[in-house]
Computed example of a mutant assay.
Amino acid sequence: MIIAIIIGCEIGFWVFIALGLTARYLLRRRKLGAVLLAMTPLVDLILLVAAGWDLAHGGIATFAHSLAAIYLGFSIAYGHRMIAWADLHFAHRFAHGPAPVKLTGVAYTQACWADVIRTLFAVGISAGVLTLLIWIAADDSSTGALTGTFRVLGTILVLELIWAVSYTLWPKKDPADAKVPEPKM
């Protein structure tokens, strides 16, 4: 059941974004678009309530509950950025907005380090949600699936950190500056 709710919430998240951007740019109804975009956190609330209710009423903790916690953390931490990304691309495609810029060099490295901070925030939220779910679970013996997820969160954070360090040491080159290798004869 929780997997279906997670899938439904992910679909709902993107539906609210699509409807909000459609209202904003195609229908020229900025206020309606803002309201629809502001509804995206409602999807997170629905997921949190569903996962908590399931565990509080005797549901056995599974990876799906852990996935719900991870989804919530990353949705909250990265949600605004995903909406801004979609807004930029939608505005470019349908409202003659500026073209998205591909980051390279120092700008890309700075974006990677901003993602480390964002991921740290997401991991913290996910860990808090996991702790809440463990606390409200009716069956304490079935929370192993939840407690094991803390290692997954640590791994995600370490991978994000490695990514940022790698681009600090070896910055992403601008395609215009990249040399095309000479063909070997």
Rank of each mutant, 00 (worst) to 15 (best):
R151E: 08
A138G: 15
I6H: 07
T62W: 04
R118E: 08
D177V: 00
Y167N: 15
A51T: 12
A61Q: 06
D174L: 12
D115T: 08
F63G: 15
Y71W: 14
A99I: 08
W113Q: 03
T109H: 02
G105F: 09
L47K: 11
V129H: 06
T62E: 10
R24T: 09
P98Q: 07
A38L: 11
W135H: 11
C9N: 07
D174I: 12
P171W: 08
G144R: 09
L159C: 09
T155G: 12
D44S: 09
T131D: 14
P181A: 01
L120C: 10
G12T: 00
F121N: 15
K184T: 01
W135T: 13
H92G: 03
G128L: 02
F121L: 15
R93Q: 11
M82W: 13
F90I: 06
T62R: 09
L27H: 04
A145C: 08
S142H: 00
L88H: 14
L133M: 07
Y71N: 15
T62Y: 04
I156V: 06
S166R: 15
P175A: 02
I70M: 09
T143C: 04
I136N: 07
E10M: 10
L67I: 00
G79C: 06
A64S: 00
M39D: 07
V43S: 07
L19N: 08
D177Y: 00
I134G: 12
W53G: 06
I125D: 10
S142P: 00
G73M: 03
G73V: 02
V152K: 04
V35D: 04
G58S: 15
L55R: 05
G33F: 01
A178E: 08
Y108P: 13
V35T: 11
L72Y: 01
